[in-house]
Amino acid sequence: MARLTLERVSFWYPATERPALRDASLAVAPGEVVALVGNVGAGASTLLLVAADLAPRVVGGMIKGTVDFRGRGNGEGGRGIVLPTPWTQLSGMAFTVRDEVAFGPANLGWPRERIAGAVDRALDALGIGALAARDPATLSGGELQRVVIAGIVAMEPALVLLDEPTAELDPEGAGLVWRLVRALAGDGCSVVVATSDLNALPEVAHRIVWMEDGAVRRIGDPALLAENALCEAGLATTVADVWRTARLGAPYPLTVAQAEERWRQ
């Protein structure tokens, strides 16, 4: 029983002739982490918008195919998306970080005690408890990114969609986000993440979806990130790429640990 199912979905933005998503099919199970990899224009961001029920409902445009989500509407037990530009995702209605994170839960009409608990947990999970009283307008890009993710997590969604969640973060912040993704999946939440932080994926993702030109090219386990085709597309992990460039022979290792193991053999 999949939580999210896309069946042969194509999507056109308003006033465009070419579809941004072509015939894409994908099923995501509860507690599964699926990573979308691809180059600019591959359609990963569009797939996330479609999965979030924002395209075409809010974005406009035209869709073909079926999108099935087993959960409630937006937010609680529903789905939440984090877009890659954190400064446009502040509500504008909150004058402290704590209120910003509480914005979603308050919109769901939860009682105040429940909101307080959910906000505390989300602030804690993103390591931003110390920022709680700050004005969001004074935060750095990385801090904002964490606040925005916390704002989605606080709504306790059943499906989290992340578009380049680590783009604004330093390595420490990125590590924290990836640990959070695993923790969410451990609690039964499904996560679909579009990212170019390929080296993190073998540790985080259950499955990899390779997208190209709006279409799903291949779906497989993380070992996909060490295959020749992905190396050529610039979508392999650094270790695999180095191994291949050094002509050390296929199959290429994915991670440093695997490379070390191969080297000893």
């Binding site: 918008l49 979030a52 924002l54 809010v58 974005v59 509407g73 937006n74 937010g75 609680e76 789905r79 939440g80 998306i81 877009l83 530009t85 446009t88 995702q89 502040l90 509500s91 504008g92 914005f103 979603g104 919109n107 769901l108 925005v148 704002g151 989605i152 709504m155």
Partner: peptide, 12 residues
């Protein structure tokens, strides 16, 4: 547009 999407996804 991005702001509208962000508000929608947060149950606004």
């Amino acid at each position: 547009d991005e702001r509208a999407l962000a508000l929608e996804t947060r149950g606004f």
